[in-house]
């Protein structure tokens, strides 16, 4: 029976349970997940636990991943699209340590993708599970601070306030100025916060073949989108929902259809646009796509040169 793992050099005493959480906590989270899947977009309260990192650093996503992960899984963790930033590296190492998890950076090889604020550019496949880290699960919270009131608004589908907010945006600025965490209507019933992904990613949620799970550790909520669920970004007939677009392609891989980050590169205010999804960008460069600034970046050692990637 392999219930416990041991710390190196301390083979005698059990350290912690597989995937860190105890079995009763996993059962509680699993029950919440099943109810979340049965009512897409509804936020199920759960007993969020203390984790060995601060709330706000992905504890909700980590608890969801810990409750679902098993020896058959391959885990990918991204932070703002990148596999190699602090939060992603820490969480990946956490599961390598506590669950002997097989990890990958390749989107298509992963069975579980835990993400902070991006959906990978490569299309998700049936059988994959997206786990989102959510700071604020309540889309109405900035409009109505009282939980007792927002709960009633969801119960009665009383969503006029959200439409008014979007309308006021249009009246003042001529367009909806929300660019991330853009509210969506799920299965025609619940308004849901898609987590702070750019609105560029919202269309990828609609009818996705992958299961999508959302965990908010500090706010103690879990919600879900089963595969093939309708996810409509809120808009008006005369102001249809639009995603971001850029005037130039990715400076490294010349992609024109991916979400680009703007990077300031010197004191004179010069800037470059690069793919936020690091694996997507690397895959394209390996396939021979060359952006305008790839040579400079390779020369200064910021990305692998063409010789070493091919």
């Amino acid at each position: 029976m392999t219930v416990h793992q041991t710390l190196p050099g301390d083979e005698t005493s059990p350290a912690y349970n597989y995937a860190y959480l105890d079995e009763q906590t996993k059962r509680m989270i699993r029950r919440a997940l099943l109810k979340a899947v049965a009512v897409p977009g509804y936020q199920v309260p759960f007993g969020s636990r203390e984790m060995p990192l601060a709330r706000g650093w992905g504890t909700g996503g980590i608890q969801v991943t810990a409750a679902i992960i098993g020896p058959q899984d391959t885990l990918k963790v991204i932070d703002q699209g990148a596999d190699d930033t602090t939060n992603a590296v820490s969480i990946r190492r956490f599961f390598e340590k506590t669950a002997d998890a097989r990890t990958t950076e390749a989107t298509e090889q992963a069975t579980i993708i835990q993400t902070r604020h991006r959906i990978p550019e490569a299309p998700l496949q049936a059988g994959q599970i997206m786990v989102y880290q959510v700071p604020q699960p309540e889309p109405l919270r900035k409009l109505e601070p009282r939980e007792a009131e927002t709960r009633k608004m969801h119960a009665w589908a009383e969503y006029g306030l959200m439409q008014v907010k979007l309308y006021e945006n249009i009246a003042r600025f001529g367009e909806v100025t929300t660019t991330y965490d853009y509210p969506v209507m799920v299965n025609g019933r619940y308004i849901m916060a898609p987590s702070p992904i750019p609105k560029f990613d919202n269309p990828k949620m609609h009818m996705s073949p992958a299961l999508q799970l959302f965990g908010a550790g500090r706010e103690k909520r879990i919600y879900a989108l089963p595969p093939h669920t309708s996810v409509r970004s809120l808009d008006f007939e005369d102001h249809p929902f639009r995603i971001q677009s850029w005037n130039e392609p990715c400076a490294l891989c010349a992609a024109t259809d991916s979400y680009l980050d703007e990077v300031v590169i010197d004191d004179q205010g010069s800037r470059m646009f690069v793919c936020s999804d690091s694996h997507h960008c690397e895959t394209r460069r390996a396939a021979g796509h060359r952006g305008a600034m790839l040579g400079d970046a390779a020369a200064s050692g910021l990305v692998a040169s063409e010789e070493s990637t091919s």
Binding site: T2, V3, E23, Q72
Partner: peptide, 10 residues
């Protein structure tokens, strides 16, 4: 093997 059998069942 409660940990892995319940995980697979879940």
């Amino acid at each position: 093997d409660p940990v892995f059998q319940s995980q697979a069942a879940f």
